[in-house]
């Protein structure tokens, strides 16, 4: 008889994802703000059509890593980086990779719901309209599809012209997800998407995340370990800008390999 146990490995990068190919691949990635290193020597693979969670204490670099995945750091001139990140085998920093195109393929949802001060409809259509004019009929279809995908359609179908800011926090967050989905991304990055929400809204967002993984690769940053445990398939634990442990969520939350991980997820003093 064999032990019912995932084969342990010595490096997160070598985890056996044979069941699903990786969508994003981070190779020897390092990032610094000015002189201050934020991420060092990171290597990990994000499996396709799965939910991968980044957990770790504040300032561990998990959000920094997430933002690096769609090059949001480009705005900040003091940021320098080493190593590479590949999306479906393509280097995202390659000169032929247009950053706007990258961000359409790798969507992002932020901690505080940030709908634009427009109607619900215009919010969802925002990304589409950036891609040029298209028939209203088609915009209507995409808006409905996106709102349905984000499980928001039934709640807002009668007031698409109402201000997006009239929605509750949880609805706003799902609207933001719908807005991102409307652009048709392959990867969805979620930066603490439920931390500003009440528990019920938070659960709705988690349910949505679970449903979305049939078509999308999701990467989730969260402070809430129970949330990571609930929704993710794989979990990466980062500390001080380093990847400490990366593996299937089941293993990481019942029997982590390293004491640092154990201490963090069980709330012990290091």
């Amino acid at each position: 008889m064999t032990v019912m146990q995932h084969t342990p490995s010595t490096s997160g990068a070598l985890i056996d994802f044979s069941a699903h190919a990786s969508s994003l691949e981070v190779r020897d990635f390092a990032l610094r703000y000015g002189d201050k290193p934020a991420l060092s020597n990171l290597t990990l693979r994000v499996p396709r059509h799965r939910v991968t969670a980044f957990i770790g204490p504040s300032g561990c670099g998990k959000s920094t890593l997430l933002r690096a995945l769609n090059r949001l750091h480009d705005l900040n001139e003091s940021v320098s980086r080493e190593g590479s990140i590949h999306l479906e085998g393509q280097d995202i920093h390659a000169p032929e990779m247009m950053v706007a195109e990258l961000r359409r393929r790798v969507g992002m949802v932020f901690q505080v719901p940030n709908p634009f001060p427009m109607s619900i409809y215009d919010n969802v259509a925002f990304g589409l309209r950036l891609q040029g004019r298209m028939p209203k009929r088609r915009v209507d279809d995409v808006v409905e599809w996106a709102l349905r995908s984000a499980a928001l359609w039934d709640e807002v179908k009668d007031r698409l012209r109402a201000s997006a800011w009239s929605l509750s926090g949880g609805q706003q967050q799902r609207l933001v997800i719908a807005r991102t989905l409307a652009v048709g991304p392959e990867v969805l990055l979620l930066d603490e998407p439920a931390s500003a929400l009440d528990p019920i809204s938070s659960l709705k967002v988690e349910e949505l995340i679970r449903n979305l993984k049939s078509t999308l690769t999701l990467v989730l940053v969260t402070h809430n370990m129970q949330q990571a445990a609930r929704v993710s398939d794989y979990t990466a634990f980062l500390q001080d800008g380093e990847l400490v442990e990366y593996g299937p969520t089941d293993t990481l939350f019942t029997n982590p390999r390293l004491a640092r991980t154990e201490n963090y997820i069980t709330g012990r003093m290091a």
């Binding site: 939350f253 019942t254 029997n255 982590p256 991980t261 154990e262 997820i265 069980t266």
Partner: peptide, 9 residues
């Protein structure tokens, strides 16, 4: 407490 890891075990 929703214990995890060694606590859960």
């Amino acid at each position: 407490r929703q214990p995890a890891a060694s606590d859960l075990r």
